[in-house]
């Protein structure tokens, strides 16, 4: 009954569909590893989406669009960083405020860009391989995979990664050891913003590609959930994003193939399956949650 669904084509689709969430979630992972909880992912994504779109349309270059998206969203995240790190505002509420602000600002910026078709981006062509769907995707798909490897490696094996984790685990100890808690966190927040911006631009320049207000439609929230799903491990962010994206694509394929499963059930399935898989993983290892950065969400003020 699933005979008409080609697995390779399906995998190629799910890789594309998952990329915005994967990019945003990798950024948020780094932010949270430094001990900062930024709930403004949705706002940063949508600002990235509009900044990337405008730049790509005006310059005709999708690559410049992606750069502008990363910069634009990072600027927005800098606002969050100043508020939470300098003025020690509450991270949860500031992040939610950032989402509100980002949605509003993006709509104001995007006025006049409705119904415009952005320049299309070239696909990667590898001689001999490009006939296989999985090897003929947008370059950002592969960049997002490289990002997973890079984040994993930096966090695990490099000195900056170690400092970042130390700051996230115990800001007081890290400070006592002479590391700049504020500086490290600032950088982590900016990185998170830039990644979310790339994810947003991937939506507005590649997947959809179009600018409409509110077009991220909640993907920033899913990215936040995926970081938790991954219990703050880079590889599991990849797993989580592809699982969620995969089920989403699969359920649409099942519908298109005319499989007789109630649509209500199919449309809930990405959320339910993500929960079920997390339950299985977390009950398997009782210490799973212990991987959360110990200082996550706590303000730091050097008292000495």
């Amino acid at each position: 009954m699933f005979g008409s669904i080609d697995p390779l084509v399906l995998i190629a689709s799910l890789m594309v569909a998952s990329t915005p969430i994967l990019l945003a979630a990798m950024g948020e992972l780094v932010t949270e590893k430094s001990g900062v909880l930024n709930l403004g992912v949705e706002g940063m994504m949508i600002v990235g989406a509009v900044a990337g779109f405008i730049t790509a349309v005006e310059t005709g270059s999708p690559a410049l669009g992606f750069i502008a998206a990363a910069v634009g969203a990072a600027i927005l995240s800098a606002l969050f960083a100043v508020l939470t790190l300098v003025f020690l505002s509450n991270q949860v509420a500031t992040g939610l405020g950032l989402t509100l602000f980002g949605l509003g600002v993006s709509s104001l910026m995007g006025q006049g860009y409705n119904g415009v078709r952005p320049p299309s981006s070239p696909r990667v062509t590898i001689p001999g391989l490009s006939d296989i769907p999985v090897f003929a995707l947008h370059p950002m798909v592969y960049i997002s995979l490289l990002l997973v490897v890079a984040v994993w490696w930096v966090l695990r094996s490099t000195r900056p990664g170690l400092i970042l984790r130390a700051v996230g685990e115990s800001h007081d100890s890290a400070h006592a050891l002479g590391y700049s808690v504020r500086g490290t966190r600032f950088a982590a927040v900016l990185f998170g913003g830039a990644c979310a911006g790339l994810g947003g631009a991937f939506l507005s320049l590649v997947i959809v590609p179009q600018w409409t207000e509110g077009m991220t439609a909640g993907r920033g929230w899913i990215a936040l959930a995926i970081v938790v799903f991954a219990s703050w491990r880079a590889w599991r962010v990849l797993l989580g994003a592809y699982l969620f994206g995969g089920v989403t694509v699969l359920q649409l394929n099942l519908q298109a193939a005319g499989v007789a499963i109630p649509v209500e059930l199919l449309s809930m399935s990405p959320y339910l399956i993500t929960i079920v898989v997390l339950v299985i993983i977390s009950s398997d290892r009782r210490r799973a949650a212990a991987n959360a950065p110990a200082s996550l969400g706590r303000s730091f003020h050097a008292s000495s």
Binding site: L88, S89, T94, G97, L100, G104, S106, L108, E213
Partner: peptide, 26 residues
């Protein structure tokens, strides 16, 4: 006024409320 401007305005209000709160403890 566009609805987006109101959203941005609400965001600003939150930022100021949360940011100035630092004066209570510091």
């Amino acid at each position: 006024l566009p609805a987006a401007a109101i959203q941005a305005f609400q965001g600003m209000l939150l930022f100021f409320l949360l940011g100035f709160d630092v004066l209570t403890s510091f």
